[in-house]
């Protein structure tokens, strides 16, 4: 028996394309706008969300039959917050440098609506294994957009990738800058992310008209 049935594979692959959490479900936009000025921050955030989503979905799925409907949102919040704090504490004790890099993201993960959205929409109605795959899939879908946006913004805004100058030195005017090219300062500020995400949505819907909502 295959480890993943076709349905299972779709749980992972769909969020990467036609059911992308950011461009189609419009979840997790806030963090996609806030932290994508650099590629490195995008990748760190994506990994952190991957971990919390995978694990959180499993925990919620295991508890799905005993969670009281009246307080289910609170229960979900507690699960995310606990997971995030546990991870943060362990990193602080054993990988202090990494925990400092991540510290900014901790608050952002707890409030990331992708996580709450997938708990609500999937984990509460499905078994742990499928929920785990769904969590991983959506986190990857989120990661793809974050990395694309981070790549474009860092390249055009700062002329670097992962902090390495790839277009030359803007101050000493070497490389591409020698030809009169300038960094676009607009790309570093959050509105630029909105425009980049908008362009991605546009391209995606042009390629697949089935995604366009009917009025």
């Amino acid at each position: 028996m295959a480890l993943l049935t076709k349905k299972d594979t779709n749980l992972i692959l769909d969020p990467l394309t036609d059911n992308n959490p950011i461009t189609i479900q419009v979840l997790g936009i806030c963090s996609a706008l806030a932290i994508t000025a650099e590629l490195k921050a995008s990748v760190v955030m994506a990994i952190a969300v991957l971990f919390v989503m995978g694990l959180g979905n499993v925990v919620i799925s295991l508890m799905r039959n005993i969670i009281p409907a009246k307080i289910k949102i609170i229960v979900q919040l507690i699960v995310v917050a606990t997971l995030v704090i546990v991870v943060d504490q362990i990193l602080k004790a054993f990988a202090y440098e990494l925990s400092k890099t991540l510290s900014v993201f901790v608050g952002l993960i707890i409030t990331n609506c992708i996580i709450m959205g997938r708990f609500e929409a999937f984990a509460l109605a499905n078994g742990p294994w499928r929920s785990f795959l769904d969590g991983i899939g959506n986190a990857l879908g989120y990661a793809v957009i974050l990395v694309i946006v981070g790549f474009i913004r860092e390249l055009l805004g700062s002329g670097t990738l992962f902090g390495y100058a790839v277009l030359g030195d803007p101050i000493a005017k070497t490389g591409l800058y020698a030809t009169g090219y300038e960094n676009n300062g607009f790309m570093i500020i959050p509105p630029a992310a909105l425009i980049v995400v908008g362009i991605i949505i546009w391209v995606q819907r042009t390629r697949n008209p089935a995604l366009v909502e009917e009025n």
Binding site: A34, A37, E38, S103, V104, F105, E154, I189
Partner: peptide, 10 residues
């Protein structure tokens, strides 16, 4: 810093 914006104030 504790929580400045990654890529900007950070």
């Amino acid at each position: 810093h504790k929580g400045e914006t990654p890529g900007l104030g950070a």
